[in-house]
Structures are given as structure tokens and as C-alpha cells.
Amino acid sequence: MYKTLKLILSALFPSWRFFDVIAPSPRIEFTVLKTANSSPDHWQEFRPRPIQLSFFEMLKRMFWNPQRNENLFLVSCAERIMSEPTDQSIQEITRRIETELSASHNEFVEESYLQFRLVFLYREDTQIKNQIMFLSSISKMDGA
């Protein structure tokens, strides 16, 4: 309850510090494993952004933009994992990867295991670098 009160107070007395600094930027990458002991050899970015968007697509997204807004929520979860790790943030990411995988490869998912990692991109002088900052534990996919 204290945390909820703190959250609502931060909305009623907002700081409005949008884009004050461009912080390291997280990417979520996942791998599907055959067993809980397998070593990951292929990491894939979760929901990479589209190569390009048409004007019509941009217009549509003004009214209907669920995946993009969910991706922004997942960025918040990734940032929360780094600042104050909670199971809830980890589960939010895991659940969405599982749901999307099971929707596209149902038979493949049921006996598989999932692991994700957070890769943060940042600028050092003029170079863009990346660093793996978090590796989740391996979890069995339930095909949900």
C-alpha cells in the first residue's frame, strides 16, 4: 500500500523530466533450449522494431498501438530489473515471450525451456557499445 501511495503521489506531483539524459537502452533477447541444462547458442531479439512504417501504419498506430505500448512497458520492466530486481518484472517479460512463442510455434514450445537476457546499448565517446547486464534463470515453457 505504501508503494502504491508513493506511485500515486509521484503522479500528482510529477517531475516532468522527460529525456533529461539518454540512459543506456535495453534490448530483450531470448533463447529457446531443449533441456534445462542446454547451453544457449543462439540469442534472438524479442520483437525487433519494423524496418519501416508506412504513413498509413503510423496513422493507424495513433489509435491502435498495443504492441508498441507493451514494448515500452517491457523497457520499464527491464529498467526496473536493473534498479530494483523483482520477480514480477522478470515474470512480465517471460510471460510475454512465452505467449508470443506459443502463438507462433505451438508444438515447438511445449517441451522447451526459455531464457532471456538484457543487453544495454550505450554511447562511450563516439562509439555505441553494448553490455549484457542481466541473465534470467532457465524456465520451462508451459505452452500457455
Binding site: I22, P50, R123
Partner: peptide
């Protein structure tokens, strides 16, 4: 929002917005 940007040298020299486009999660397409 304007104040916190203008006190940041990266915003004053345009670097911050370049970072937004170059590696942040914000651009809607590649």
C-alpha cells in the same frame, strides 16, 4: 522538460537527440 534539457550539454550540442535516434528504444522503425 525544456529546462532539464538545456542544462545538459549533450542536448545543447545535439548529441542527445542523435543518441535517441541512434541506439535508444524509441524510434518506431529501423
Amino acid at each position: 522538460s525544456g529546462w532539464v534539457k538545456i542544462v545538459n550539454p549533450d542536448w545543447r550540442n545535439g548529441r542527445a537527440l542523435q543518441d535517441v535516434f541512434q541506439f535508444s528504444t524509441y524510434p518506431a522503425s529501423e
